[in-house]
């Protein structure tokens, strides 16, 4: 009797497993981007800032792209990172 019960359980398990596999096969893998859960988020920069950014990228071109920049704006950006915070005041 116990052998019979075991066989039934095994068959039932196989049926369930095959059902799981079929379900997995049919499952479409889809990744939602998700909505930002925070309260605040940066928006697009202003038109003036965007234009300033374009003026700064243009000098990186040697070709026709540089023509788009006025003579005043065509300066080589030096970066203006000043020693501050963690590294301020250190003696090298």
């Amino acid at each position: 009797m116990s052998n019979g019960g075991g066989a039934v359980a095994a068959i039932l398990g196989l049926v369930l497993l095959s059902g799981c596999v079929a379900e997995e096969r049919a499952r479409a893998v889809r990744l939602d981007k998700g909505g930002y859960a925070g309260t605040t988020a940066d928006q697009a920069v202003s038109d003036a800032t965007r234009e300033a950014l374009r003026q700064r990228v243009a000098p990186q071109a040697e070709g026709a792209g540089k023509v788009m920049v006025s003579a005043d704006a065509a300066v080589m950006p030096t970066g203006d990172a000043a020693a501050s915070g963690r590294i301020a005041g250190q003696k090298f």
Partner: peptide
């Protein structure tokens, strides 16, 4: 959902 994309 801690990521977001700015308008740019």
């Amino acid at each position: 959902d801690c990521f977001y994309q700015t308008g740019d």
